[in-house]
Amino acid sequence: MAVETLGGAFGAATRKGRGHSFATPAVLAATLVLLYLWVSTRQLDSMEARVLSAAFIRDAALTHLTVTAVSASLVVVIAIPLGVLLTRPFARRLAPWVMAAANAGQAAPALGVLVLLSILFGIGTRIAVVTLVLHATLPVLRNTIAGIQQVDTALLEAGRGMGMSRGQILRRLELPLAVPVVMAGLRTTIVICVGIATVATFINAGGLGDIIVAGIKLQRTSILVTGGVLTAVIALALDWLAGLAEKYVRPHGI
């Protein structure tokens, strides 16, 4: 249910056109420069130096991005076809049930699911990806269904009247017209993935959460701030990119 929120929340931000301006990346870049300057003026002890080394940060960031990218891709591969399927006449009655189940699953806190799965199936990146996919599927699934259902029935009738087959109507009318809504869902999914990937450090799945956890354990402000800022910047940057993509894949005329 937390995600239902996020879906709505980001939906509004999307329509407001956030991501169209280049102010966001400029601010994010400036934040990173400031962070770099601040850290480089400090005397780092050995523990700080280890965590704040270029190699450690690069590995953490790469893992974080990989986990996010893999999960988001899996979500796309699973949720969009499932959403399309659930809007076909033979499955339409199933849609509310699937959505109810997905909503209910979403009510479970991601941390709880992560821990449960790792206790049952072991720790590591793979389990983290499974949790991410479970949690981030709903926005894309829901928006795929909503996106297809919102297509004006008069258009579909016009398509049928012109002699288009069901498949043609799906490919040439329903899907293109649903793209903006689906993309809004995908953007939400990406943000959720980045967030849960941070917590994945708890089950040894790596990522930027490693830096934050190190900061908390070692009680070093420099590490805490670096981890926090890097994670926030990556989340905002991916959200911005997704917003940009949302704008460009939108069919002309919508």
Binding site: V199, L224, G228, T231, A235, L236
Partner: peptide, 11 residues
Amino acid sequence: LTIPSLALLAL
């Protein structure tokens, strides 16, 4: 809201 919760808590 886009900032991951663990990151915000860290900050």
